[in-house]
Design a protein around this nucleic acid. Structure first.
Lengths: 205, 205
DNA sequence: TAAAGTCTGTTGCAATTGCAACAATTGTTA
DNA sequence: TAACAATTGTTGCAATTGCAACAGACTTTA
């Protein structure tokens, strides 16, 4: 989907939707109960962060261009402070789920396509989530790695895959200790399952 | 949302949507590339299943009343055979994502509300997924258990929680070995963090 | 270009986990 | 109600994992 086109349509047609800019390091939004905010990241990068009980910042999720986020996607309650912080300069569309639904009765043609575009973004998000859940469900680091590699491989129709992010971030994505993951990658290489050169991995099985 | 009302609306208004029944043990659908099927489970229970390389049946996901599922939610390719099997007698609404979008231009009023209802179902699904991802991201069984208990507790506004499924299924949900989970529950009891009586757990912290 | 920061790669060690196997209990069905 | 199936509960043991710590390579910024 062409999100910049969507953005233009929305801003021309709907006073309830705001477009805002956030410099790196600033808070884009705090998740609050019952506000039902929805945000679309037009450009930049941002993290969804929670403070845990010890005061550590947990990065729950990372957002890139075209990602959709907001309160509607999370169980929000008062124990549970979530906020989104720009890690690079961000352009964001902000509106509420209720506006999305209510306005439909007045201005149907446009809102139909708006909702249907939102639905598409949400569906893409769901696919990514299902993929991640499947990987996280594997019991061992080896299985997690191989199942991730297989997914990349079948997406690119090739046994040669290029990791889309750093090994440090890969460990976060798989939710495993980085050093333990590195050890397992070494094992896979030594046992002849994969060949690795920088960010490129060749599947030998 | 009232899914039975939705079902009635849909069937009265749209010839593209089918309602079907499936006895326990039968296949409801097989996920196929490019068909973009969407299903809503009106009643019954079903499992999303994949055969792994060794021929084992992996249960990827379990569906209950009001759950939405289908190809649009998953990365589907030929390496990757997914199918949904009824574990109890099921009533299912079946339609395609493309029909959902295309019909809007002819019959807007109704389809707007249809899409917006679908969006609501998908959003609920996303919230559940985000919750599960957050739990699966925890590194230890203890953290997984406590974070799950905390979520149940804050949903019910009570330190006394009732597990919504068996301990065997809980282990599957947390993606950990059942016996290891049982051991950790025992540790939590012995260390005074929780009190357990059957399916009821009291948080003592 | 020097310094600071990030990323990759490795290792020892202790703690956690999965696996296998089994007994006891509860629930279901013929 | 007897037989069967499913769930709960426990344990020993081996394998995996996380943690801590460190060195070297690579990037970015002052």
């Amino acid at each position: 989907m062409d999100v910049s086109k969507l953005s233009e349509d929305i801003l021309n047609n709907c006073s309830k939707v705001q477009k805002k800019e956030f410099p790196a390091g600033t808070v884009i939004t705090t998740y609050m109960e019952k506000r039902k905010q929805i945000c679309i990241l037009l450009s930049g990068k941002a993290d969804l962060i929670r403070y845990d009980l010890k005061g550590n910042q947990d990065i729950i999720e990372q957002f890139n261009q075209n990602d959709i986020f907001g309160e509607v996607f999370h169980n929000v309650n008062t124990n549970n402070e979530l906020f989104v912080m720009a890690t690079k300069k961000c352009e964001v569309l902000i509106f509420s789920y209720d506006d999305l639904r209510i306005k439909c009765k007045q201005n149907c043609g446009f809102h139909t396509s708006l909702i249907s575009n939102i639905l598409e973004l949400v569906l893409n998000n769901t696919i990514s989530q299902n993929t991640r859940i499947e990987i996280l469900s594997k019991r061992s680091i080896r299985e997690k790695l191989l199942s991730y590699f297989n997914i990349l491989s079948s997406k690119s129709f090739s046994k040669n895959i290029v990791l889309p992010f750093s090994l440090t971030n890969l460990a976060d994505y798989l939710s495993v200790d980085r050093s333990a993951m590195m050890r397992e990658i070494r094992n896979l290489i030594d046992e002849g399952f994969i060949f690795k050169n920088g960010n490129t991995i060749k599947l030998l099985y």
